[in-house]
Design a protein around this nucleic acid. Structure first.
Lengths: 173, 173
DNA sequence: GTCTATAGTGGGATAGAC
DNA sequence: GTCTATCCCACTATAGAC
Protein backbone atom coordinates (compact mmCIF):
# COMPACT_ATOMS: atom_id res chain seq x y z
CA UNK A 1 0.00 0.00 0.00
CA UNK A 2 2.16 2.84 -1.17
CA UNK A 3 0.54 6.11 -0.46
CA UNK A 4 -1.22 7.95 -3.21
CA UNK A 5 1.24 10.80 -3.42
CA UNK A 6 4.17 8.45 -3.92
CA UNK A 7 2.20 6.59 -6.51
CA UNK A 8 1.59 9.85 -8.37
CA UNK A 9 5.26 10.75 -8.39
CA UNK A 10 6.20 7.29 -9.62
CA UNK A 11 3.70 7.45 -12.41
CA UNK A 12 4.78 10.99 -13.32
CA UNK A 13 8.30 9.75 -13.64
CA UNK A 14 7.30 6.90 -15.89
CA UNK A 15 5.24 9.24 -18.03
CA UNK A 16 8.10 11.72 -18.23
CA UNK A 17 10.50 9.07 -19.44
CA UNK A 18 8.05 7.79 -22.01
CA UNK A 19 6.70 11.03 -23.37
CA UNK A 20 9.27 13.67 -22.54
CA UNK A 21 8.78 16.95 -20.68
CA UNK A 22 5.99 18.09 -22.99
CA UNK A 23 4.20 14.82 -22.57
CA UNK A 24 4.05 15.24 -18.82
CA UNK A 25 0.66 16.86 -18.37
CA UNK A 26 -1.71 16.67 -15.48
CA UNK A 27 -4.38 15.27 -17.75
CA UNK A 28 -2.41 12.35 -19.11
CA UNK A 29 -0.86 11.66 -15.74
CA UNK A 30 -4.34 11.35 -14.30
CA UNK A 31 -5.38 9.11 -17.15
CA UNK A 32 -2.54 6.72 -16.38
CA UNK A 33 -3.76 6.51 -12.81
CA UNK A 34 -7.30 5.95 -13.91
CA UNK A 35 -8.60 9.14 -12.35
CA UNK A 36 -9.56 12.61 -13.51
CA UNK A 37 -7.05 15.42 -13.62
CA UNK A 38 -8.66 17.56 -10.90
CA UNK A 39 -8.28 14.72 -8.44
CA UNK A 40 -4.52 15.07 -8.60
CA UNK A 41 -4.74 18.39 -6.85
CA UNK A 42 -5.91 16.70 -3.68
CA UNK A 43 -2.46 15.15 -3.41
CA UNK A 44 -0.18 17.66 -5.06
CA UNK A 45 -0.46 21.41 -4.90
CA UNK A 46 0.55 22.12 -8.46
CA UNK A 47 2.45 20.84 -11.41
CA UNK A 48 5.45 22.81 -10.18
CA UNK A 49 5.45 20.96 -6.90
CA UNK A 50 5.33 17.70 -8.77
CA UNK A 51 8.35 18.70 -10.82
CA UNK A 52 10.28 19.64 -7.71
CA UNK A 53 9.61 16.16 -6.36
CA UNK A 54 10.94 14.64 -9.57
CA UNK A 55 14.04 16.82 -9.50
CA UNK A 56 14.65 15.80 -5.91
CA UNK A 57 14.45 12.15 -6.85
CA UNK A 58 16.85 12.69 -9.71
CA UNK A 59 19.44 14.41 -7.54
CA UNK A 60 19.20 11.70 -4.92
CA UNK A 61 19.59 8.93 -7.46
CA UNK A 62 22.34 10.41 -9.52
CA UNK A 63 24.12 11.45 -6.35
CA UNK A 64 23.85 7.90 -5.06
CA UNK A 65 25.25 6.56 -8.32
CA UNK A 66 28.24 8.88 -8.04
CA UNK A 67 28.88 8.00 -4.40
CA UNK A 68 28.59 4.30 -5.19
CA UNK A 69 31.04 4.68 -8.05
CA UNK A 70 33.84 6.02 -5.88
CA UNK A 71 33.05 3.69 -2.99
CA UNK A 72 34.01 0.83 -5.25
CA UNK A 73 37.43 2.29 -5.91
CA UNK A 74 40.64 1.38 -4.09
CA UNK A 75 41.82 4.11 -1.73
CA UNK A 76 44.39 6.48 -3.09
CA UNK A 77 43.42 5.83 -6.68
CA UNK A 78 44.99 8.07 -9.28
CA UNK A 79 42.89 11.13 -10.06
CA UNK A 80 42.57 10.00 -13.60
CA UNK A 81 41.02 6.68 -12.77
CA UNK A 82 38.68 8.30 -10.28
CA UNK A 83 37.51 10.82 -12.83
CA UNK A 84 37.11 8.11 -15.43
CA UNK A 85 34.92 6.14 -13.06
CA UNK A 86 32.84 9.17 -12.13
CA UNK A 87 32.45 10.21 -15.73
CA UNK A 88 31.22 6.79 -16.70
CA UNK A 89 28.75 6.78 -13.82
CA UNK A 90 27.50 10.22 -14.79
CA UNK A 91 27.03 9.33 -18.41
CA UNK A 92 25.43 6.01 -17.62
CA UNK A 93 22.87 7.46 -15.27
CA UNK A 94 21.93 10.22 -17.69
CA UNK A 95 21.61 7.78 -20.59
CA UNK A 96 19.35 5.56 -18.53
CA UNK A 97 17.01 8.44 -17.59
CA UNK A 98 17.40 11.03 -20.32
CA UNK A 99 14.24 13.01 -19.75
CA UNK A 100 14.60 13.02 -16.01
CA UNK A 101 18.17 14.17 -16.43
CA UNK A 102 16.96 16.95 -18.67
CA UNK A 103 14.28 18.00 -16.23
CA UNK A 104 16.73 18.02 -13.35
CA UNK A 105 19.49 19.95 -15.11
CA UNK A 106 17.65 22.30 -17.43
CA UNK A 107 16.51 25.60 -16.03
CA UNK A 108 17.19 27.02 -12.60
CA UNK A 109 17.47 24.76 -9.59
CA UNK A 110 14.56 25.35 -7.20
CA UNK A 111 17.03 25.46 -4.34
CA UNK A 112 14.55 26.81 -1.83
CA UNK A 113 12.26 23.81 -2.27
CA UNK A 114 14.95 21.15 -2.19
CA UNK A 115 15.96 19.13 0.88
CA UNK A 116 18.77 20.93 2.57
CA UNK A 117 22.23 19.72 1.70
CA UNK A 118 21.10 17.57 -1.20
CA UNK A 119 22.81 19.62 -3.87
CA UNK A 120 26.11 19.66 -2.02
CA UNK A 121 25.91 15.95 -1.24
CA UNK A 122 25.30 15.07 -4.87
CA UNK A 123 28.27 17.19 -5.94
CA UNK A 124 30.62 15.89 -3.29
CA UNK A 125 32.25 12.97 -5.11
CA UNK A 126 33.26 15.18 -8.01
CA UNK A 127 34.48 17.99 -5.79
CA UNK A 128 36.71 15.55 -3.90
CA UNK A 129 38.06 13.94 -7.04
CA UNK A 130 38.73 17.14 -8.92
CA UNK A 131 41.04 18.68 -6.35
CA UNK A 132 39.60 22.18 -6.28
CA UNK A 133 36.28 23.90 -6.67
CA UNK A 134 37.30 25.48 -9.94
CA UNK A 135 38.40 22.18 -11.39
CA UNK A 136 35.27 20.47 -10.12
CA UNK A 137 33.11 23.05 -11.86
CA UNK A 138 35.10 22.70 -15.05
CA UNK A 139 34.73 18.93 -14.89
CA UNK A 140 31.01 19.20 -14.23
CA UNK A 141 30.59 21.59 -17.14
CA UNK A 142 32.43 19.16 -19.38
CA UNK A 143 30.33 16.20 -18.25
CA UNK A 144 27.06 18.08 -18.55
CA UNK A 145 28.05 19.51 -21.91
CA UNK A 146 28.93 16.11 -23.32
CA UNK A 147 25.73 14.63 -21.92
CA UNK A 148 23.28 17.26 -23.03
CA UNK A 149 24.83 17.71 -26.47
CA UNK A 150 24.60 13.98 -26.93
CA UNK A 151 21.01 13.80 -25.72
CA UNK A 152 20.10 16.68 -27.98
CA UNK A 153 21.73 15.05 -30.98
CA UNK A 154 24.09 17.97 -31.49
CA UNK A 155 27.20 16.02 -32.32
CA UNK A 156 27.58 15.08 -35.96
CA UNK A 157 26.14 11.65 -36.67
CA UNK A 158 28.87 9.08 -36.26
CA UNK A 159 31.04 11.18 -33.99
CA UNK A 160 33.17 9.07 -31.66
CA UNK A 161 31.92 10.26 -28.31
CA UNK A 162 33.80 7.74 -26.22
CA UNK A 163 36.96 9.29 -27.55
CA UNK A 164 35.75 12.79 -26.73
CA UNK A 165 34.91 11.70 -23.18
CA UNK A 166 38.33 10.15 -22.82
CA UNK A 167 40.07 13.24 -24.17
CA UNK A 168 38.22 15.53 -21.78
CA UNK A 169 38.85 13.34 -18.78
CA UNK A 170 42.52 12.93 -19.61
CA UNK A 171 42.85 16.70 -19.90
CA UNK A 172 41.05 17.39 -16.65
CA UNK A 173 43.02 14.81 -14.67
CA UNK B 1 13.20 49.62 -47.11
CA UNK B 2 14.18 46.29 -45.67
CA UNK B 3 11.88 43.63 -46.92
CA UNK B 4 9.05 42.43 -44.75
CA UNK B 5 10.45 38.99 -44.14
CA UNK B 6 13.74 40.38 -42.88
CA UNK B 7 11.86 42.77 -40.70
CA UNK B 8 9.91 39.89 -39.20
CA UNK B 9 13.05 37.94 -38.40
CA UNK B 10 14.65 41.00 -36.82
CA UNK B 11 11.64 41.64 -34.68
CA UNK B 12 11.38 37.98 -33.75
CA UNK B 13 14.93 38.12 -32.55
CA UNK B 14 14.31 41.20 -30.47
CA UNK B 15 11.22 39.61 -28.98
CA UNK B 16 13.10 36.41 -28.24
CA UNK B 17 15.81 38.26 -26.39
CA UNK B 18 13.31 40.26 -24.37
CA UNK B 19 10.82 37.59 -23.53
CA UNK B 20 12.63 34.29 -23.87
CA UNK B 21 11.64 31.26 -25.94
CA UNK B 22 8.19 31.02 -24.39
CA UNK B 23 7.58 34.68 -25.06
CA UNK B 24 8.20 34.24 -28.74
CA UNK B 25 4.69 33.68 -30.02
CA UNK B 26 3.22 34.54 -33.37
CA UNK B 27 0.64 36.71 -31.67
CA UNK B 28 3.00 38.94 -29.80
CA UNK B 29 5.42 39.04 -32.69
CA UNK B 30 2.61 40.34 -34.89
CA UNK B 31 1.62 42.84 -32.24
CA UNK B 32 5.13 44.28 -32.21
CA UNK B 33 4.90 44.77 -35.95
CA UNK B 34 1.50 46.38 -35.67
CA UNK B 35 -0.26 43.65 -37.61
CA UNK B 36 -2.42 40.63 -36.85
CA UNK B 37 -0.93 37.21 -36.32
CA UNK B 38 -2.42 35.57 -39.41
CA UNK B 39 -0.70 38.14 -41.61
CA UNK B 40 2.67 36.70 -40.63
CA UNK B 41 1.90 33.56 -42.55
CA UNK B 42 2.04 35.46 -45.83
CA UNK B 43 5.76 35.91 -45.23
CA UNK B 44 6.78 32.89 -43.24
CA UNK B 45 5.50 29.38 -43.65
CA UNK B 46 5.39 28.48 -39.98
CA UNK B 47 6.86 29.19 -36.63
CA UNK B 48 9.33 26.39 -37.21
CA UNK B 49 10.65 28.09 -40.30
CA UNK B 50 11.04 31.28 -38.34
CA UNK B 51 13.05 29.47 -35.70
CA UNK B 52 15.30 27.93 -38.31
CA UNK B 53 16.01 31.41 -39.61
CA UNK B 54 16.92 32.54 -36.11
CA UNK B 55 19.18 29.55 -35.55
CA UNK B 56 20.91 30.25 -38.85
CA UNK B 57 21.54 33.83 -37.82
CA UNK B 58 22.92 32.67 -34.51
CA UNK B 59 25.35 30.20 -36.08
CA UNK B 60 26.52 32.79 -38.56
CA UNK B 61 27.10 35.39 -35.90
CA UNK B 62 28.74 33.24 -33.33
CA UNK B 63 30.83 31.64 -36.01
CA UNK B 64 31.92 35.06 -37.20
CA UNK B 65 32.82 36.02 -33.66
CA UNK B 66 34.99 32.94 -33.32
CA UNK B 67 36.69 33.47 -36.65
CA UNK B 68 37.31 37.11 -35.81
CA UNK B 69 38.81 36.14 -32.49
CA UNK B 70 41.52 33.96 -33.99
CA UNK B 71 42.14 36.33 -36.88
CA UNK B 72 43.32 38.87 -34.35
CA UNK B 73 45.93 36.48 -32.98
CA UNK B 74 49.58 36.36 -33.97
CA UNK B 75 50.45 33.33 -36.10
CA UNK B 76 51.82 30.34 -34.25
CA UNK B 77 50.27 31.37 -30.96
CA UNK B 78 50.45 28.84 -28.19
CA UNK B 79 47.44 26.55 -28.03
CA UNK B 80 46.62 27.83 -24.63
CA UNK B 81 46.35 31.44 -25.65
CA UNK B 82 44.30 30.50 -28.69
CA UNK B 83 41.87 28.50 -26.58
CA UNK B 84 41.68 31.29 -24.04
CA UNK B 85 40.77 33.75 -26.77
CA UNK B 86 38.20 31.43 -28.28
CA UNK B 87 36.69 30.64 -24.91
CA UNK B 88 36.32 34.32 -24.14
CA UNK B 89 34.69 34.97 -27.51
CA UNK B 90 32.30 32.08 -27.00
CA UNK B 91 31.29 33.17 -23.55
CA UNK B 92 30.95 36.79 -24.55
CA UNK B 93 28.70 36.09 -27.50
CA UNK B 94 26.46 33.81 -25.48
CA UNK B 95 26.19 36.29 -22.65
CA UNK B 96 25.22 39.04 -25.07
CA UNK B 97 22.44 36.93 -26.65
CA UNK B 98 21.41 34.42 -24.01
CA UNK B 99 18.03 33.43 -25.38
CA UNK B 100 19.25 33.21 -28.94
CA UNK B 101 22.12 31.06 -27.74
CA UNK B 102 19.65 28.82 -25.96
CA UNK B 103 17.45 28.55 -29.02
CA UNK B 104 20.40 27.71 -31.23
CA UNK B 105 21.98 25.13 -28.94
CA UNK B 106 19.03 23.49 -27.21
CA UNK B 107 17.35 20.64 -28.98
CA UNK B 108 18.37 18.96 -32.20
CA UNK B 109 20.00 20.95 -34.97
CA UNK B 110 17.70 21.16 -38.00
CA UNK B 111 20.63 20.24 -40.20
CA UNK B 112 18.53 19.63 -43.30
CA UNK B 113 17.20 23.19 -43.27
CA UNK B 114 20.48 24.94 -42.62
CA UNK B 115 22.73 26.48 -45.28
CA UNK B 116 25.20 23.85 -46.32
CA UNK B 117 28.56 24.02 -44.63
CA UNK B 118 27.45 26.49 -41.98
CA UNK B 119 27.81 24.10 -39.08
CA UNK B 120 31.31 23.05 -40.10
CA UNK B 121 32.37 26.63 -40.76
CA UNK B 122 31.21 27.76 -37.33
CA UNK B 123 33.08 24.91 -35.67
CA UNK B 124 36.26 25.36 -37.67
CA UNK B 125 38.19 27.72 -35.38
CA UNK B 126 37.80 25.42 -32.43
CA UNK B 127 38.65 22.29 -34.38
CA UNK B 128 41.87 23.91 -35.60
CA UNK B 129 42.83 25.17 -32.18
CA UNK B 130 42.08 21.97 -30.30
CA UNK B 131 44.37 19.75 -32.32
CA UNK B 132 42.03 16.80 -32.85
CA UNK B 133 38.37 16.14 -33.32
CA UNK B 134 38.08 14.43 -29.98
CA UNK B 135 39.73 17.34 -28.19
CA UNK B 136 37.62 19.82 -30.09
CA UNK B 137 34.45 18.05 -29.00
CA UNK B 138 35.65 17.92 -25.43
CA UNK B 139 36.43 21.63 -25.55
CA UNK B 140 33.09 22.42 -27.07
CA UNK B 141 31.29 20.36 -24.43
CA UNK B 142 33.17 22.23 -21.73
CA UNK B 143 32.36 25.63 -23.20
CA UNK B 144 28.72 24.80 -23.76
CA UNK B 145 28.42 23.26 -20.32
CA UNK B 146 29.89 26.31 -18.62
CA UNK B 147 27.69 28.60 -20.67
CA UNK B 148 24.39 26.83 -20.26
CA UNK B 149 24.90 26.07 -16.59
CA UNK B 150 25.67 29.72 -16.04
CA UNK B 151 22.67 30.90 -18.06
CA UNK B 152 20.44 28.49 -16.19
CA UNK B 153 21.72 29.66 -12.85
CA UNK B 154 22.94 26.23 -11.89
CA UNK B 155 26.20 27.21 -10.26
CA UNK B 156 25.95 28.14 -6.62
CA UNK B 157 25.46 31.86 -6.17
CA UNK B 158 28.83 33.52 -5.80
CA UNK B 159 30.78 30.79 -7.59
CA UNK B 160 33.90 32.10 -9.26
CA UNK B 161 33.20 31.19 -12.84
CA UNK B 162 36.15 32.99 -14.34
CA UNK B 163 38.33 30.63 -12.36
CA UNK B 164 36.38 27.61 -13.57
CA UNK B 165 36.75 28.77 -17.18
CA UNK B 166 40.46 29.25 -16.67
CA UNK B 167 40.86 25.84 -15.06
CA UNK B 168 39.05 24.11 -17.89
CA UNK B 169 40.99 25.91 -20.59
CA UNK B 170 44.29 25.27 -18.90
CA UNK B 171 43.43 21.59 -18.69
CA UNK B 172 42.35 21.33 -22.28
CA UNK B 173 45.38 23.17 -23.64
C1' DG C 1 -0.41 42.53 -47.74
C1' DT C 2 -3.62 43.10 -44.49
C1' DC C 3 -7.89 42.19 -42.27
C1' DT C 4 -11.79 39.46 -39.56
C1' DA C 5 -13.45 35.33 -38.10
C1' DT C 6 -12.68 31.05 -36.62
C1' DA C 7 -11.18 26.32 -36.35
C1' DG C 8 -8.83 23.20 -33.57
C1' DT C 9 -5.95 21.84 -29.84
C1' DG C 10 -4.04 21.84 -25.71
C1' DG C 11 -2.81 23.34 -21.14
C1' DG C 12 -3.39 24.36 -15.59
C1' DA C 13 -6.44 24.97 -12.24
C1' DT C 14 -10.98 25.71 -9.23
C1' DA C 15 -15.82 24.97 -7.26
C1' DG C 16 -18.84 22.18 -5.36
C1' DA C 17 -21.41 17.78 -5.21
C1' DC C 18 -21.03 13.07 -3.66
C1' DG D 1 -10.74 10.91 -2.51
C1' DT D 2 -13.07 11.14 -6.55
C1' DC D 3 -16.28 13.04 -9.61
C1' DT D 4 -18.49 16.55 -13.17
C1' DA D 5 -18.63 20.86 -14.96
C1' DT D 6 -16.27 24.60 -16.12
C1' DC D 7 -13.14 28.60 -16.43
C1' DC D 8 -9.61 30.82 -18.45
C1' DC D 9 -5.77 30.87 -20.67
C1' DA D 10 -2.69 30.39 -24.76
C1' DC D 11 -1.20 28.74 -29.00
C1' DT D 12 -0.63 27.62 -34.38
C1' DA D 13 -2.84 27.88 -38.41
C1' DT D 14 -6.49 28.40 -42.27
C1' DA D 15 -10.29 30.61 -45.16
C1' DG D 16 -11.85 34.19 -47.50
C1' DA D 17 -12.94 39.17 -47.97
C1' DC D 18 -10.86 43.61 -49.05
Amino acid sequence: MTDRRTQIVDEARALLEEAGPDGLTMRSLAARLGIQAPSLYKHVASKDELEVLLITEALREQGAAMHAAIDGLPRRSARRSTLTTLGAAYRTWAAAHPHLYRLATGGPLPRASLPEGLEAWAAQPLVRAAGSEARARAAWAFAHGMTILELDGRFPPGADLAQAWAAGIAALS
